[in-house]
Simulated scan of single mutants.
Amino acid sequence: MTPQPPGNRDKEAGRWSDLGRPPLNVAALRRALVRPGSLWSVVDVVPATGSTNTDLAARAAKGEPEGAVLVAEEQSAGRGRLDRTWSAPPRSGLFFSVYLTPRVPQERWGWLPLLAGVATATALSRTAGVDTALKWPNDVLVTVGGEERKTGGILAERAGEGVVIGIGLNVSLTAAELPVPTAGSLALAGAVTTDRDPLLRAVLRSLEHWYGEWQTADGDPAASGLQETYAAGCATLGRSVRAELPGDRQLVGEAVAIDGDGRLVLATADGVQQPVGAGDIIHLRPARGTAP
């Protein structure tokens, strides 16, 4: 073996410094996902970045093909709704974005983050063996110690001729590493595996399946089965919630349905059913006196 300069040895040692969190195998991921007839055209893994959504959106503006996947082993400035930021230890989760150019009416593109939620939750249930649920509009929940905890979030943004969808998932985070007490991870939920390679493949294959069904139905959430499946896995439905709106306004009611536009329908105390869109709310919280 040719001796390596000290700098290279240090870099390689750092790459494997946490043997419980090995790096992703990009060559194996490409072999499994980039194939004839597949949605996925490019799979890139970078050691670290600020935001995979920001980076992939920049690539989309320069003509990136549909099906590009960008994964970061570490993300220092991940973004959620309303530009909320979060970060996690290197290789402790899955932080990735995909670029899609839907060939369906643009008024139906608002279903893409919900579609990504369904795809992610179903893949994690199957592959990690954990119970998952969805909190409208963009959170993936697992059960830790009998309580629902957020283990993932989804952010969709217009970019180029399509949409970049970012997905962040806490995989192996310990209780001491959680950013907030209400967070969770697959490990804390008792996952049968925290190997990120099969987890990432499962989520991307599930996303490819649901995206294909949705496009075949011309973006119709009912005909594709997306609306029914999302509602079946949505923990928000059946609960009393308070939607905090711009201008210090709020709307309190029972979450009773997800409508055809992906909005949450609240039944208020005066008998009115009021839909609220994801872009209209600042926070969605349990109403006072109800379980979280």
Rank of each mutant, 00 (worst) to 15 (best):
S185I: 03
T143A: 09
L188S: 12
L124C: 12
T182G: 11
E161M: 04
N138R: 07
E157C: 01
V163E: 08
I154R: 00
P181A: 13
W136Q: 04
A176P: 00
T127L: 06
E161C: 00
D131C: 06
S185C: 13
P179G: 15
R126E: 15
A128E: 09
D139V: 06
D139R: 02
G146R: 03
T143F: 02
L141W: 06
A189T: 05
T151V: 14
A133C: 00
V164Y: 10
A187I: 00
A121I: 08
L169I: 15
D131M: 08
P181M: 12
A189I: 05
A156H: 01
L178M: 14
V164L: 09
G184N: 03
T174G: 15
T122M: 14
T174A: 15
G152A: 06
N138V: 06
G184D: 06
G152E: 04
A123C: 10
T182Q: 14
P179Q: 13
A123P: 02
S172R: 02
S172G: 15
A176E: 15
L178E: 11
A176I: 02
D139N: 09
A189N: 10
L155A: 04
A123H: 05
V140D: 10
E147H: 12
G153Y: 03
D131Y: 02
G153I: 02
P137V: 10
A128D: 10
L124P: 07
P179N: 11
N138G: 09
A123V: 04
L141V: 00
I167E: 04
E177K: 05
D131R: 14
T174M: 11
G184R: 00
T122A: 14
T151C: 14
V130N: 12
G129P: 03
T127F: 03
G152S: 07
E157H: 01
T143S: 11
T143Q: 12
T122G: 14
G152R: 01
L134E: 05
V180F: 09
L169V: 15
E161H: 07
G168P: 08
G153V: 00
V180T: 12
N170H: 12
L178D: 10
K150H: 09
I165D: 10
G146H: 04
T143C: 06
